[in-house]
Computed example of a mutant assay.
Amino acid sequence: MNKHKLRALILMLGAIFMAFFMAFFMVNTTIHAARMDMVDVSNNNGYMSTAEYVSMRNEFGVKAVTVKISEGSTYKDPYAASNITNVQAAGMYINGYHFSHYATRAQAIAEADFAGRTAKAAGLPVGAVLATDVEAQEQNYQSKATNDRNNAAFMKEIQKFGYRSDIYTSGSWANTKMTIKGRTGWIAAYPYVASGKNWYSNNHAWQWSSTAKFRISYGGFDVSQLNDKYYTAGQKSTVKPTNKGAVKTNNKKANKHTYKKSASSKWIKEKKTYTLKTAVKLHTSTSTSSNTIAILPAGITVKTDQAIIKGGYRWVRQPRSNGYGYLVTGPTSNTLKYVKSGTAHTYYTVKSGDSWWTIAQRNGLNMTTLASQNGKSIYTTIYPGQRLVVR
């Protein structure tokens, strides 16, 4: 072989190798967007029609819907039955969840019995998942061992009704406040940018946004990526998105950066005075698992001098005679659990039939903002006669 042919062969082989390398590199560095496989809804979303669920399925690729069934030992979600009926009419997988408040094993069993009976009455089919939503203050004050015992009791009791069980909680609580084993669990954690990383790939589901928008539905929704078939097992479904182009486009939009950092990841000066709306723990450091200096009661004022974003929370520092104490004021989206003292507020008195969604709509607010500025979550039950801050 002469040197010209040899050179040509070398160049050709080099080009083939380079093309192969680039193809391999591109395939293996593709950023995968988080998927909108599952949506969860409650009375806070108002009445949801079959048409809305069909739109979620066809235009956004949603496969499953998990509806709120109950809360505590007395509250029944008034939209549970209609949500279950309409989700099934849309040909989607259906599951349920119970927002728990139990602090003892006996309470966990009692809540499971209440949730199971309520789910049966609402029409949740046997074989569906009925998850326990564990994120309330009652569990926050328990040890990990106590929460594990209570969760196990709830899930064992739920199975008596023919439902499969699971635990929903936040990423900051998983394996700190309670044990979440691999191949179990539905974990909530909201990154600034969802694309490029599945934060909880070893769990059944990852809830990666609480602000997803759907074309014909009002407000923001919690959306989750399913990592296995746990939430789609044991049921028949006709989920077949009819507009794959729309699914791709809408998924891309949902993954865009929609969160704003409330403060620097470094300490910043922030001299404020807060009036606590609920009893909260004063920690020795900026970690929810750190030792507790004291439990500060609702109603007292706390003066702070600095703030920081750390570990998925927004912390403030309280100067004390012998050092500092640290308080969580909310998640990194800066949803405050406390109200700054001296600020004038406008209040709304809850009426029969009201929900977070209806009150927020009436006052031009996002319902998550409304709930958080009252020191609650959108899953907290509100009652007639209760006063809420709306301005």
Results as ranks from 00 to 15, higher is better:
N2V: 12
L6D: 09
L6R: 13
L6C: 07
A8P: 04
L9Q: 07
M12Y: 07
M12V: 02
M18I: 07
A19E: 02
F24M: 08
F24S: 06
N28K: 11
N28R: 10
T30D: 07
I31L: 14
R35I: 00
M38K: 02
S42F: 01
V54T: 13
R57S: 01
N58F: 05
E59I: 00
E59A: 04
S70C: 05
G72D: 11
Y75Q: 09
D77G: 04
S82E: 13
T85E: 14
Q88I: 06
A90R: 11
A90V: 02
M92P: 07
F99N: 11
F99L: 01
A110E: 15
F114C: 09
A121G: 02
G127C: 13
A128E: 07
L130H: 02
D133M: 01
V134T: 15
V134S: 13
Q137S: 09
E138M: 04
N140P: 01
Y141N: 04
S143Q: 02
S143G: 08
N147H: 12
D148K: 14
A153E: 14
M155W: 01
E157K: 14
E157R: 15
S170L: 05
G171M: 04
N175S: 08
M178T: 11
G182Q: 12
R183M: 03
K197A: 13
W199I: 07
S201G: 00
W206R: 06
W208C: 04
S209G: 09
T211N: 12
T211I: 12
G219Y: 10
V223Y: 00
G234M: 10
V239A: 15
K240R: 13
K240F: 03
P241E: 06
N250S: 08
K252N: 09
K252Y: 15
A254T: 12
K256R: 11
S264T: 08
I268N: 06
K281S: 13
S285G: 13
S289D: 11
A294P: 00
L296H: 09
A298S: 14
V302L: 04
A307V: 10
V316H: 11
R317E: 06
R320D: 05
R320C: 03
S321D: 15
L327S: 02
T329N: 10
T329M: 08
P331W: 05
P331S: 13
S333D: 14
L336S: 13
V339L: 12
S341P: 00
S341V: 08
T343G: 01
T343K: 15
T346G: 01
Y347I: 04
D354E: 11
I359Q: 08
A360M: 08
Q361H: 12
L365T: 05
M367E: 06
T368L: 08
I378Y: 10
Y383H: 14
G385C: 10
Q386R: 14
L388Y: 04
